[in-house]
Design a protein around this nucleic acid. Structure first.
Length: 199
DNA sequence: ACAAGGATCCTCT
DNA sequence: GAGGATCCTTGTT
């Protein structure tokens, strides 16, 4: 069952937590989301914080679309646009566990990552496994065809911690606990920095 | 037109 | 745990 567009028209932190366990599908490849990060409009870690640019314009548009950008000149990052039109926020997909299409995933990953979590724990790896590049920017994830977002098995517990790689953000945003991960999955990166929610 | 830096990944120690 | 790869986006001249 595909997620509806209204699922995404909410606060990025809320959507991020609820995306855990959901399924990304592209052809025969099906991945269960195990780690995400929220980026909000009023957040100096967010690419759109300093205003609208050609690269970030998708984040200002309707929710439920893909925001894909190139990092360090070689890694594609898959995000889901959240919130109402005009509010630039998104959720970065940082890690997944394979559900189906593992042979295709391994081929796209070029034989790297072996058989364990190193195969899919990291945002660049997830995009590569799904065959996502910048030509997918703006794609409607709630529509039928291409890359889709489906319901899935929710995690039994949620891990929470600070976001990764945002040293450029101001101090008050750098430590926000806006990274979420499935507590029941080994397919999570930087697990040390995470704590069980509510504990 | 140019320079700087980046929401990472991989390899090696 | 550290460093290099690699090139696009952005802000400035």
């Amino acid at each position: 069952m595909r997620l509806r567009q209204r699922f995404f028209r909410r606060d990025a932190v809320t959507v991020a937590r609820e995306l855990l366990g959901k399924e990304l599908r592209s052809g025969a490849v099906r991945l269960r989301i195990t780690e995400v990060e929220a980026y909000r409009a009023d957040d100096s870690a967010c690419h759109a914080y300093h205003g609208r640019t050609p690269r970030t314009s998708v984040m200002f548009g309707p929710p439920g679309r893909a925001y894909v950008y190139l990092c360090y000149g070689l890694h594609h990052m898959l995000n889901v646009v959240t919130g109402p039109v005009g509010e630039a926020s998104a959720v970065l997909i940082r890690a997944c566990e394979p559900v189906a299409g593992l042979d295709i995933v391994r081929e796209r990953r070029g034989g790297k990552g072996g058989k364990g979590p190193a195969l899919l724990t990291g945002p660049g790896k997830v995009a590569q496994a799904l065959g996502v590049d910048r030509s997918w920017c703006g794609h409607r994830l709630y529509a039928a065809g291409g890359l889709e977002l489906h319901a899935g098995r929710a995690p039994s517990s949620v891990l929470v911690g600070p976001r990764i790689g945002i040293d450029y953000a101001s101090p008050e945003h750098r430590e926000l606990p806006w990274r979420f991960a499935a507590g029941d999955s080994p397919w999570v990166s930087h697990r040390r920095a995470l704590e069980c929610e509510g504990a």
